[in-house]
């Protein structure tokens, strides 16, 4: 087995991990800051892919779809928070879980009714069709673009959370919402924005995945399971954890695929089991935290 093959395999693992990171990030942010386990995250990922496809065909450009779909679906997420989730804060963690679980069925069935249950082609943007010769092998341009875009989004997110006033309020709100209210911060607005951000990230993941897979109503269910595995490995609520675990899962799947391809799906669950045995709170999780 030569080195260039292993490097190519690592690269496909990173590209695979990039989409996982984006999706798991939305899930973990919403859990970490709102204490809501969003079971509709996979469905919103799927809605994002459909919205991206629809907007791309409407405007004639993939780039508008990529930009507008996360914003639009993020706004839709805020509507969900405002109308539904908000009523359940302060109750047990099961209530929003059940609500979002039901919501995921509504969304999937809704898409089946509007767009049909067959897959729809999502063409790769013309600028990114084809492969790039890396010297050691060929790699799809589009997947390289996904790696770069995810890196940029992560950087922007990190800067916003760590270096701006808004980020400060958000981080403080996650720690102690009561004190924030006493200090005169409208915490309801913060929660609204956070949920919108989480959903927007799911939608971004969906648009990015669209040209790699065909778009269909069930595409979110597998993604939801993967995103949960990543958040559990990384530690529920941990942003750094989601990034590290997402890449770790992607690379593990890819390297296992090289030696034992039929095990490729199982490896992430095995990884999760091992992490839970050694560090039950996840790699970057805080022990005993229940949000």
């Amino acid at each position: 087995m030569d080195l260039s093959l292993i490097i190519m395999q690592l690269l496909s693992g990173i590209a695979l991990g990039a989409v996982l990171v984006i999706t798991a990030l939305g899930l973990t942010i919403v859990f970490g800051m709102l204490g809501v386990v969003n079971f509709a995250h996979g469905a919103l990922f799927m809605i994002g892919a459909y919205a991206g496809l629809y907007l791309a065909s409407l405007t004639g450009s993939f780039w508008w779809g990529l930009l507008l779909a996360p914003i639009l679906i993020g706004a839709f997420g805020m509507l969900i928070e405002f109308v539904l989730i908000r009523r359940l804060y302060g109750r047990s963690i099961d209530d929003p879980l059940l609500l979002t679980f039901g919501l995921s069925y509504v969304l999937v069935e809704g898409v089946r009714i509007v767009f049909g249950s067959d897959g729809i082609p999502f063409p790769t943007p013309p600028q990114l069709i084809g492969v790039l010769d890396l010297g050691i092998g060929f790699f799809p341009r589009y997947r390289l673009f996904v790696i770069v875009l995810v890196a940029v989004v992560l950087l922007a997110l990190w800067l916003t959370l760590e270096k701006t006033r808004v980020g400060l309020i958000v981080r403080a709100g996650a720690r102690d919402p009561t004190i924030m209210q006493v200090l005169g911060v409208d915490i309801g607005r913060v929660w609204l924005a956070i949920f919108g951000l989480g959903v927007g990230l799911a939608a971004l993941g969906g648009v990015l995945a669209g040209p790699m897979r065909s778009v269909n109503p069930e595409m979110g269910s597998l993604v939801l399971a993967e995103a949960f595995v990543v958040t559990v490995i990384g530690g529920l609520g941990s942003i750094v954890g989601a990034v590290v675990a997402g890449l770790m899962v992607g690379i593990s799947i890819s390297l296992v695929a090289l030696f034992a391809p039929e095990m490729a799906t199982i490896v992430m669950f095995a990884l999760m089991a091992v992490v839970l045995l050694i560090r039950p709170q996840g790699l970057f999780g805080v022990r005993g935290r229940t949000a």
């Binding site: 395999q9 695979l16 092998g137 997947r143 897979r213 597998l222 890819s254 695929a257 490729a264």
Partner: peptide, 8 residues
């Protein structure tokens, strides 16, 4: 859903 890891 993903076959990229088999391609190289």
């Amino acid at each position: 859903a993903d076959y990229s890891t088999f391609m190289p």
